[in-house]
């Protein structure tokens, strides 16, 4: 590939001529901008880039990218993306989805795409609400959520998407948020470069139906004490002065005062750890975005991706049996001749 020139593009090249129809102030805008700005940096080709989405506000995303794209049906984007990624390993396939799309109606497909390690990059816009249908609670809404469909408060226990993905042994799991373009771009880049299924949960504000859902952790003032940055190879610590940290024991992960335990007791983040249990423990530090919450890459391990496995089987079959011969196939059973 070294003799192939890296295409030089700008954000404008990745921007379609379609008018954007998200509500003014929606967090989706900053995510779109981050992706459009990242593409030139990745040296990606527009013709080799496909965005596949399901249904929901975020799933309008492909219309705004000047690439190939499919706005499919509710929850099924990972299914379409699996077929495309397996049959066209030369493409880079992104899946754009939301908390309702990926975790409710499409939960099964998400789990299996992660389990199989299909080579797709999944951006999961989590706003903890159904926006397109105008404000019902979602599978990531906090218990007790009062919405149009839950006037007395929701009863369901919410999913933590990162925990879910780690439980499915996803090979790449990360979290970022719509208030920090730099962090988003860095995280998306890692997800893009990962071979296999990568899932990025993006905390995204729905300013119309669930405004301020992430305020407790994402206002500029709150971030230092409420976001726990995960940096590979570094001790996990946070706080205005870095005074807090995370220790991991057999009982799980817990937040400590560094002064109490000493820096040496802090967990050193290892995103490449083969066993997902420590990453899972980290994902359980916060029940929801109201207490200190880890962001960054939880897990990035190498595992053969599904499309490569499928295609190597196809190649191996050709090597062993020779290319398909239709005449021979039709006569592969017992045959006899008449006349």
């Amino acid at each position: 590939m070294t003799d192939v020139a890296v295409p030089v593009t700008t954000k404008k090249d990745w921007t379609s001529d379609q008018e954007i129809r998200w509500c003014p102030g929606c967090g989706d805008y900053s995510i779109l901008t981050a992706v459009q700005m990242l593409m030139p940096e990745l040296g990606a080709r527009r013709e080799d880039t496909v965005f596949i989405s399901g249904i929901g506000c975020s799933s309008r995303f492909p219309y705004y990218m000047d690439t190939y794209g499919v706005h499919s049906i509710h929850g099924r984007a990972p299914a379409l993306a699996t077929g495309l990624a397996v049959s066209r390993p030369d493409l880079h396939v992104w899946v754009i989805t939301g908390d309702g799309d990926a975790l409710s109606i499409g939960g099964n497909h998400l789990l299996h795409a992660l389990r199989r390690n299909v080579d797709i990059t999944i951006l999961l816009f989590n706003n903890q609400i159904y926006g397109l249908t105008k404000g019902q609670y979602s599978p990531t809404s906090e218990t007790g959520k009062v919405t149009k469909s839950t006037p007395f408060g929701s009863l369901d226990h919410p999913y933590n998407p990162v925990s879910l993905a780690l439980g499915a042994e996803a090979s790449f799991v990360a979290r970022t948020h719509d208030m920090d373009r730099k962090h988003m771009m860095a995280t998306f880049k890692r997800a893009y470069e990962h071979k296999g299924a990568s899932l990025v949960e993006i905390y995204q504000n729905c300013n119309v139906f669930n405004d301020g859902a992430f305020e407790a952790i994402l206002t500029k003032d709150n971030r230092p004490r409420m976001l726990i940055p995960l940096v590979h190879g570094e001790p996990i610590r946070f706080g205005v002065e870095g005074e807090k940290g995370v220790v991991v024991t057999a009982d799980g992960a817990r937040i400590v005062e560094v002064a109490d335990v000493g820096e040496g007791a802090l967990a050193v983040h290892d995103e490449a750890r083969p066993d997902p249990s420590v990453a899972f423990a980290l994902s359980r530090l916060a029940d929801g975005p109201t207490s200190p919450t880890p962001i960054g890459v939880f897990r990035a391990v190498e595992r053969a991706d599904y499309g490569s496995l499928v295609n190597s089987q196809v190649l191996r079959a050709s090597d062993q049996k020779g290319p398909g011969d239709l005449d021979a196939l039709l006569a592969s059973g017992a045959t006899w001749t008449v006349g």
């Binding site: 299914a79 379409l80 993306a81 397996v86 049959s87 066209r88």
Partner: peptide, 15 residues
């Protein structure tokens, strides 16, 4: 659903 979804995704890609 995934069976037909994957088939349609593959058709989109030219299979």
């Amino acid at each position: 659903i995934a069976g037909v979804g994957a088939a349609l995704g593959a058709s989109y890609g030219g299979a």
